[in-house]
Structure formats: C-alpha cells, structure tokens
Write a protein that binds this DNA or RNA. Sequence first.
DNA 1: CATGAATGAGGTTTCATTCAT
DNA 2: TATGAATGAAACCTCATTCAT
Lengths: 220, 220, 220, 220
Amino acid sequence: MRTFSNNEGLVSERREHIAKSVAPLFVRKGYGQTSIREIAKACDMSMGHLYYYIGGKEDVLQIMMDFDLHFYVNLVKKIISSSRSLSPTEALVKVIDQFFRATDAAGDFTLFFYQETKNLQPDARKIIMDRERSLVMEFEKLLGRGCTAGEFQIDNIPLVANNIVITGHMWALRRWMLRKICTLDDYIQNQTEYLLKSIAPGGKKGLAFNKGLLREPLNK
Amino acid sequence: MRTFSNNEGLVSERREHIAKSVAPLFVRKGYGQTSIREIAKACDMSMGHLYYYIGGKEDVLQIMMDFDLHFYVNLVKKIISSSRSLSPTEALVKVIDQFFRATDAAGDFTLFFYQETKNLQPDARKIIMDRERSLVMEFEKLLGRGCTAGEFQIDNIPLVANNIVITGHMWALRRWMLRKICTLDDYIQNQTEYLLKSIAPGGKKGLAFNKGLLREPLNK
Amino acid sequence: MRTFSNNEGLVSERREHIAKSVAPLFVRKGYGQTSIREIAKACDMSMGHLYYYIGGKEDVLQIMMDFDLHFYVNLVKKIISSSRSLSPTEALVKVIDQFFRATDAAGDFTLFFYQETKNLQPDARKIIMDRERSLVMEFEKLLGRGCTAGEFQIDNIPLVANNIVITGHMWALRRWMLRKICTLDDYIQNQTEYLLKSIAPGGKKGLAFNKGLLREPLNK
Amino acid sequence: MRTFSNNEGLVSERREHIAKSVAPLFVRKGYGQTSIREIAKACDMSMGHLYYYIGGKEDVLQIMMDFDLHFYVNLVKKIISSSRSLSPTEALVKVIDQFFRATDAAGDFTLFFYQETKNLQPDARKIIMDRERSLVMEFEKLLGRGCTAGEFQIDNIPLVANNIVITGHMWALRRWMLRKICTLDDYIQNQTEYLLKSIAPGGKKGLAFNKGLLREPLNK
DNA sequence: CATGAATGAGGTTTCATTCAT
DNA sequence: TATGAATGAAACCTCATTCAT
C-alpha cells in the first residue's frame, strides 16, 4: 500500500483513525457510493492529505475491513479463551451466545463484508480471508477440545466450525426475514439446541441409515 | 417500470433477453462496475434501444434478479413436488441434495444476490425478498409434512427451513474456504446428517438440559 | 417544408390538426422541452406518420406559430373592420378594448411567441414576422383614418401602432407584475386614456419645448 | 446553490467570471442550445471545475441573469440619482434618454431575459423578478416626485413606470421591426413626447369623455 | 397511409486523483 | 505535513430521425 510518509508509527495511527471514521459511512452508503470527498470529510482531513496515507480509494476499504475484522477476531479469541475453564459443552454454549450477540451488535457490518469484499484487490482479499479463516479456527479448536473430551462427536470439525460462524452471520444477513420469525434470544437458543443435537455423541445407526438414503436414490 | 413500448409481449420478451444476456456480465463484474454501454453490447442492442424497455440502470438489475430468482424458486418447487410420493425424510434428503447441487450450479449468482440486493429500490427489493420468502416456504411445507408424520420434531419450522436454505447458500458464499475442507458431495452428505440429527424425534431430555445451560450462566 | 405526401389538401388539413394539438403542449412545456414523442401523442399520430407531414421538429413550431398568428391577425382584422362605421376615436377605443381582451385570452401564447421565435429558421422567422407586421398595419390604417379625420395628430403612425400592439402584449409578458397593480379592466382604461391624450390634436407648444429639452442637455 | 468550495470570496469571484464569460454565448445561442462543454470552454475551465462552483446548468443561467440585471439596475439607479438636481420633467427626459440608450447598448440581452426566464427554477425566478421590480420602482419614485411638484398628473404611477420600462425594452424586443420605422434618436424623442403629453397636467374633460366612450358601447 | 422499434451522437453530471502552494 | 482547486475521462440517459413492415 503506497504511502508518502516514512513515519511508520504515524501512518498506522492515521490509518486506524481512517478505519474508525469511515466505517459508519461505508456501512450506511456502501463503498461504491461513498466518494473520496466524503471519506476525507469523515476523517477530518483534506483530500490531498488523505492520499498521503493511502494509495487509492480501494486502500480505504481494505484498511477499514482489516481493522474491523481484526477487532472482531480478537473479540472472539477473548471470548473463547475466557471460557477455557468451562466444560466444552458449557464453553460452546457460552461462546455461541456471546459470538452471536457480538455479531448482532456489529450489525450491518457483517453484511457489508459479504457485499464489498469483491471490491478488494486479490492480495487485499487474501489478507481479509486469512483473518476470516483464523476466526473459524478458533471454533475448530473449541470443537476439537469437545471431541477429545468425548462430549462431541464430529466427522468434519472445520465444517461444523463454519456452520457456527455462518449461523451467526446469517442473523445479520437475513435479519429482514428472521426478525419476523423470532427474537435474537430465541434464535440463539434454538440454533444452539440444533447444533448440540447434531454433534451429540451416539446415533451411529441413524447416520448409516441416512447415508444409505442419500446414496441410493440419487445414483443415476 | 417505465417503457416506451405498449406491446406487452414484446416488452417481456426483450426483458427476458436482457435478463439472460446481462447475468454473466453482472456476476463477473458486479452491478456497479458494469456500464450501460457494456450492458447494451451484451444484449446486442444500442443504448438508446435498451432504454426503450427499461427506465434506468437499476431496472436491469431488478429484471435480472427477478428473472433468475423466479427460475430458481420454480426449480425448487419442482424438486419438492416431484418428491411428494416419498416419505418426508426421504424427500428431505433428496430435495436437499438437488437444491444444494442447483445452488452450486447457479454459482456466483447466489453470492451476487447477497451483494447487490442493496442496489435495488425499496419496492424492487420487496419483490425480490418476497420471492426469497416463498423459497423458504417450500421447505417449511416439507418440514411440516415430516412433523405431522412424526418423522421430525421441530420447534421452529421457519427457522429450520431458513437454515437449510442458508446452508445451501453458504456453499456459494464461502466456496473459497469450504473447497479446502470438502467436496460438494461431502458437504451435502455431512450437512444432511447434521440436519437430520438435529430434527430427529426424541431427545427431549437433552433439550431441557441445554436450555438450562443456556439460560443460567448467561443471566446477569 | 418537406413532405412525403403530394395530396396538398390532406397535408394542410393535417398541419392544422398538428397546430391545434400541439399548441397547449408547447405553451405549457416550451418548445425545447417537448419531445417528438409527446408531439406525436398529442397529435394522435405515430412518430413516423408525423414525419410524413413535416420535415423536422422545427417545422412543428413554425406550423403552430403560423397558424395561431394567422388566427390572431384575422381576429384583429375582423375587430377593426367591424368598427368601420364608428368615428376613429370610438373605433380605436373599441378596437383596443377587444384587442387587449383577445390578447389576455390568448394568455401565455403571446409570451410563447417572444420566447420561441428564436428557434425558427431564418426563412420561417421571416414568415412569422411578416404576419406580425401585418397586425401592426391594421392599427396603422385605423390611426391613419383618425389623422385624416383630424381626430388624431400623430407624427409617426407606425410607431404609435407598434405602441398599441406592445401595450397589449405587455399585459401578457408582464402579467406577474401588472396583476399586482391593476385588473385588466383598469389596464385597458388607463392605457386607452394615456394613448388618447398622447395623440390628441393640439399641444404643439409643449412638443417644441420638449424637443428643446431633449436635445440641448444631452449633447456632448 | 451548491458549491464544493467553502472559500466564499473565491466562489463569488469565479461566479462573476462565469457570468461575464457566458453572457455573449448565451445571448448568441440561447440557453438551451448552449452545452456545458461550451460554457466551460467560454469560462476557460474544465467541465469538472465548473461544477465546483455551480450545482447544475440552471445555476449558470441564474448567475448570469442575476449579475447582469444587478448591473443594469445599478446603472439606472445612478442615472436617476445623478439627475436629482433637475426638475422632474427635465430629469424624466434625461433619464429616459439614458435608460433607452443603455437598453439599446445591452442589446439582445434584454430579449434574452424575456426568452429565458422560464428556464429558471421558481426561487431563482423570484430573485430575478424582484430585481426587475426594483427597476420599475426607481421610475415610480421619479414620477412621484413630478406629481408632487405638479408637473405630472398620473392616476396609476406604477403602470406608467412600467410603460416607460417596457417602451425601453420594446426597442430591443422589436428592433427588427422598429429599425425600419425610425432611428434610436427618433424613437427616444417620439416616445418621450407621447409620454409627456399623456401625463401632462390638465385635460380632465377629455378623460371624462373617454371613460364614457370606453364603458358604454362595450357593455353587453 | 401508417406504425413504432431501432439508432447513436450528444447532453449533463460525477469523481478519483494530482499538484502548486 | 497539509490544503483544495483543478482535471478529464467516463458515467447515465435522452431524443430527433429513419426504415422495415
């Protein structure tokens, strides 16, 4: 990311300022509909000065996404590590509860990520995706602990970890439909139940049966 | 939606042509990054002629989304009605299989919906969302049948229906991550297993237990 | 003016239809802001068919102006000839009254002429101006009759004729200001008085005095 | 009127520049037939930069009209105040002479006003009309002084003031016809004579007589 | 005679980016 | 460091006119 300043500390300080200033603007108007003039005004900088710290408009998007995702991932890490003393099941329930509430609080920001990632350059996109991957990995660790402890039985841990994350995001992505169905409290409770049932140990028979169902009639 | 033609048949024919022509372009470049000139060229029309059938650029987005979603919803309806003779469980397994494969085939189109719906005018957005809602309702009907038959046990049918749809979409939205975890076949099989386990009858005790877990430690 | 039809009678019939149909549209929206599509719709014709009788958009303006001015001039001629049996002063008073009322009824049409004549081609403009000139000439004849009869004393008859016409137009051109000053009845009465005083016989002395005033202090 | 600059001094300086640069162009081609590209070129600015000081094409019209009318009204004010030491009759004669010559010098600009005011937004139109009104009021003051001094006898001062202004405008509006009748010098002299006769004191009898004429034969 | 689908040049406006100060 | 005036390419959209039917 091009810069005219060599003062690294200043640059990262300014970029944090940019990320914070621009977030509500981007979330409200969308990246494409926000002009550099508006960005500069939100950052309380002149346009020329803004370009002192960024190389182009896209950089503002990347800076903002990276910063917010960093914050979000750290939050999840804190939540997970703070429940390390609990049993895996208890920890999972608590983490899901807090993760879903945090996602709800992040609000349209989650939706923003799904919408605007496409506007990033490939290398910037990779950075963002790596952060997203690390978010999932936090859940993988927790699920792994549960499997080791015999509380969960999971074939494909990364997939279930993804399911949890997506289920959190879903509340943001489809709020317009889900709000008509239930409250956030209901949502958390119900989804947690479904998850726990689906990863509860035992039930091998059912699985074998299902696998049969799945394979036979669909063969052509 | 404004038109200069009164020939309704012609208008809807051209609009279908527009919807089909523009879809790959939109999916590849994004709505905002596609210019009217490109749209016209993709439709093999002059720009002026394009405006003979639409009122503005936004209309192209709406026409394309409406058409594709219509197609998609009809497909799901067909899938579901074709499995009416099967038992609910068998039907669900089959429908999920086909629905997930259809969503995979629709490719980036699913992602496109999540990204670009924001660019629609409120009334156009409502139309699109109603179609989306009707998609979910197809699954609700199927789940309802399973509950009646005693094969499923579901508190919140609309929520589970949403889960199924989202799980399908997720394969498109997060392909970049999921592809590293498993194949589509694995994905379908695993997600189906998780779903069936989570809605399997019985297990009341577990639920009560979970509810306790959920509520007690989180109360402040 | 180009035509595709050779049937002269039909052409002039259609052009009259066009003139009548388009007048309210032009007066309301202005020539430049009215599209051929709207013109065709107002004429109850297709665009293509309209071009069967005209050579271009400008022709519509010319046709409409020519027709309406023709109508207007004829009206004034009728008014003037119908008062031929009255004394010149009586006739003038009556003609002015009726002319001003007719101009008021023509409404924004008068303003339209001043605004849009510039959009005519030079030769079309000449035709319109000739009609306007013939309007003035009708008043010149009347004034000439009065001078011969000794009821008026006018140095420059064409100028006074112009003054009368302009004073009529002024009511249309500056209605927004004049309406605050007086009613149409007041306007007619006052302007008639001023006119009659200014062309009353006698008062040579005053004129000589004025001429002196006019010439001496302004010479440099 | 929207601006991107907060530097008020610069903005009004540039707008004056725009007003001056664009006037001959507008007068020659008309507002509607002048493109933004041409306006920018005439102002020696890029199109984008032009939009730095205006909110839209209409603003250019308003800026130009406001500026020129301001100049014109100030001119008349100066003329009138410079003749304050003269007798009302002398002053009127002198002011008319100078006002008519100024209007003649302003050339097609007067016609432009009558033609293009319709293209202004209502609020902009109001501003222009207020300036026009203040022009008339200058003449009202002068006429009022003459009435007080007993040199004029006028029922409706605002109307006569309007007549004077219109008679000046008329030379511009109908130059094509008036030029064939007389020179500007003749025009000024004749119109001044007519005016002075029409507002000369005395002649009550004639008025009473005329009023009779006016009312009786036209009643139905 | 009559239609209206089709054209494409040209209109107004926006905006990321630069550079003299 | 900091400013914001200036650029110009490119965006969306309109419309007079033509021509195959």
